[in-house]
Write a protein that binds this DNA or RNA. Structure first.
Ligand SMILES: [Mn+2]
Ligand SMILES: [Mn+2]
Ligand SMILES: [Mn+2]
Ligand SMILES: [Mn+2]
Lengths: 221, 221
DNA sequence: TGAAAAGATTAGGCAAATCTAATCATTATG
DNA sequence: CATAATGATTAGATTTGCCTAATCTTTTCA
């Protein structure tokens, strides 16, 4: 039998956390992400270790095995393909699809994923700008320039977000900062690191550091 | 919280069985359908009774309450909408979609079902000719004329199947007997109740009683 | 009509996934 | 560097959904 839905969720969480904790993911951070108490996580880590999905040494933190990473990437692939589907074909907004994709990502059918990918035209990025792993689990690594790193007078294109919360996404949408939007940094306020930007033909707007550092951009040229 | 996936499966099973056992569905038949042992079913029936999804009197058999039927119809609606989606938009054959729909029917999002229904153009029947309950759970009752009831010389149109097994569906497909196909009964063999039919511009073919009684038709004119 | 057979329920148990409380290990700090 | 704080694990319990074996109820039929 394949991994349970619960096991899949753990592996996906460990995969994501390992990008910030490459030397080993902490029990606590897994629990925080999945809303589970530490003992629950400890139990599961032992089990995932037994199944060789993770390398687990008590009190040390965990890393994925190749098999564990393969499973995590498969789930992430399905999640992002379904999000793309919902936005591109079912008229959902980018802030509405995550919870539904959390369910759809566990549907078990290789053929379905194939057809979904084909139906969408083999997309490379999801509605939040996150790269979609291909059928072999290959994922394009993404540069990590955020809007706060752009200097006064320079232009950049919004290519992703670091915060996926409904609140943040709705806020960006409300000020017309969506994927592929070109943004010009008009001014940088040293006092609080906020910036003044102009996007499209909207009026100038001030963005807090908290906002700008959660916006992933690509420099123009 | 809503009903669990397991509870939904029981209610759907009871709904289907109640069409054949209207005075009360037997524990054994539920177990047979869901591949569960009788004690497992007894346990769950007590629980479903406590939750007022079914009327349960020990040793008597069960019937759905209005609430239980509402839930069952919601699951059946989702199952049939997803099957329609997979066949009409993802290039699946009618014998390939049931198992995937068994998973998709449990995805919990009213908005998703709405958009799916809209995307499909509010279909009334699924790829097997089964009627799709509307958003209020209203389902058009289907007449029950099967191909074995058609007399020699008469024509009928294939509008559904009673057996949904992959084997049966693949067999029908292989002899070009698919939904909306017009069939003429050329001869009836009294000895074994088999019939000789002609469909489209294919040559005449003999169908066993077992096959003909699993094909739902509509008389021509 | 009174066994025997069939069907249903009860009793007792197990695995998965969760929790709280208690204990153990690591890290940080006065 | 000793100890307090933090983090992780172990112990013990609960819920859900499943099982086998034993018992009870209903139906069948000789
Ligand atoms: Mn998401
Ligand atoms: Mn996403
Ligand atoms: Mn089906
Ligand atoms: Mn169907």
């Amino acid at each position: 039998m394949g991994p349970s839905k619960t096991e899949e969720d753990y592996l996906k969480a460990i995969y994501k956390l390992s990008k910030v904790q490459p030397k080993g993911v902490a029990t606590k951070s897994i629990g925080d992400l999945l809303n589970l108490k530490p003992p629950t996580v400890s139990d599961m880590l032992r089990k995932l270790g037994d199944k060789k999905f993770i390398k687990y040494a008590k009190y040390k933190g965990v890393t994925l095995t190749n098999e564990g990473e393969r499973i995590a990437l498969k789930i992430i692939r399905k999640h992002r393909l379904w999000e793309t589907f919902l936005v591109d074909h079912f008229k959902f907004k980018w802030d509405e699809v995550h919870d539904i994709a959390e369910q759809l990502e566990h549907i078990d059918s290789a053929r379905l994923v194939e057809r979904l990918d084909e139906f969408l035209g083999f997309p490379k990025f999801d509605p939040h700008g996150d790269p979609i792993p291909d059928k072999d689990g290959v994922i394009v690594p993404r540069h990590d320039i955020t809007l706060d790193q752009i200097k006064k007078g320079q232009k950049a294109v919004l290519v992703g977000v670091k915060d996926h919360s409904t609140e943040f996404l709705k806020y960006l949408e409300s000020i017309s900062l969506t994927l592929d939007t070109e943004v010009k940094v008009i001014n940088v306020i040293n006092y609080d690191k906020s910036i003044v930007v102009k996007a499209g033909n909207h009026s100038e707007r001030n963005l807090s550091f908290q906002v700008s550092k959660n916006i992933i951009v690509q420099r123009n040229q």
